[in-house]
Simulated scan of single mutants.
Amino acid sequence: MRYSGDWMSLVDDRILEYIHEHGSGSPKKMKEEGRIRYSRQHIARRCRTLAEKGLLTHLGNGVYVITDDGAAYLNGELDTETWAQVDGTETETGSGNESDST
């Protein structure tokens, strides 16, 4: 069972599945193959969001690959609701080590 955050949309799972299966992907290619039935522009926006959240990595020229966290989400091992909140905090502070105090 996957644990999607409230920031995610239905197309996000299809994008992650496509890139996981193919090793990489671009919004143009996903649209052309017809598996993801959204506009190329919408797919591109969601890819950027997934990359900002750490589930995809943008390699340039519109090509994305899945991260370890993205694969963990697909396997039901990552709750993106609680993870995204922690990730957003770390991104804002920049270092991610603030919780290391004892």
Rank of each mutant, 00 (worst) to 15 (best):
S95A: 01
E77I: 14
T49W: 10
D69M: 12
L78N: 02
C47S: 08
D69Q: 05
W7A: 04
H58R: 05
L78D: 03
P27A: 15
W83H: 07
T91Y: 08
I66S: 00
R35T: 12
D6H: 14
S95G: 01
D87I: 06
D13E: 14
T93E: 09
D79P: 00
N61V: 03
V86Y: 04
R45V: 03
E81N: 08
M1R: 05
L59M: 12
H42A: 04
L78V: 06
Y3C: 00
G5W: 14
T80E: 04
M8D: 03
P27N: 13
G88L: 11
A84D: 12
D69S: 10
G88M: 09
T49F: 14
R37E: 12
G54P: 01
V11I: 15
Q41S: 12
Q41M: 05
G23S: 08
G34S: 09
A51Y: 06
V11M: 13
N97R: 11
G25A: 06
G5Q: 12
D79H: 07
M8P: 01
S26F: 08
R14G: 02
S101C: 02
L16G: 03
D87E: 15
S39G: 13
R2K: 09
S39L: 06
H20F: 11
H42R: 15
S24E: 12
S99F: 10
G76H: 06
D100Q: 03
D87G: 00
K28D: 09
Y64N: 03
I36G: 02
E77G: 02
C47P: 02
I43K: 03
T82R: 08
M8C: 07
V11S: 11
G70H: 12
G25Q: 06
S26R: 06
A84V: 02
G96F: 11
L56E: 11
T89R: 13
G54K: 08
R37V: 12
M1Y: 06
R40W: 07
E81Q: 15
L10C: 07
